[in-house]
């Protein structure tokens, strides 16, 4: 079975804490993700996402606090707007926008983090691996 590589960019206060809770609660979920924590989802630069895809990630998860809950007031609204635009940019590059996923996960939602990872892994399995851009780029 194809095992997608997923990079998870998580804010430390909510989604990151939710991921920790999934672990400390010993929930079982797919081990395909690598978590990278940021102080706020608003600090996740579109460059980070593109580097992840450019270096061969099959999917990128961005996790932040629920709307209204960002510890820096409005970082997650910026994230929401960036992801809306970034998804369109991925279309132009021929990358399926379903490979980029945005989720609001609170520190209490360990179960949600686990189910998002399971579901995202499944979706990426059905999409298959990211292709190297072209024969030329591979040289």
């Amino acid at each position: 079975m194809f095992e997608p590589r997923i990079i998870c960019f998580l804010c430390t206060w909510c989604a990151g804490a939710g991921a920790d809770l999934a672990g400390t609660s010993r929930l079982e979920y797919t081990p395909n993700g690598v978590n990278i924590r940021f102080m706020c989802s608003g600090r996740i630069d579109p460059e980070h996402v593109l580097w992840a895809f450019g270096k061969g990630a099959d999917g990128v998860l961005i996790g932040g606090c629920h709307p209204g809950d960002c510890h820096y007031m409005d970082g997650n609204y910026k994230t929401m707007a960036r992801v809306a635009l970034l998804s369109r940019l991925l279309d132009d590059f021929g990358i399926n926008r379903a490979r980029l996923r945005l989720e609001w996960i609170s520190a209490a939602e360990g179960a949600k983090f686990a189910s998002v990872m399971n579901d995202f892994t499944e979706k990426l399995r059905s999409l298959g691996p990211m292709k190297p851009a072209t024969r030329e780029m591979a040289r």
Partner: peptide, 22 residues
């Protein structure tokens, strides 16, 4: 990456907190 930086900058000045409107 210039395009990524433009996405980042535009994303921070959108006057909406609603996903559909954004």
């Amino acid at each position: 990456d210039q395009g990524a930086k433009i996405v980042s900058a535009l994303g921070s000045i959108i006057d909406s907190t609603d996903p559909d409107e954004t």
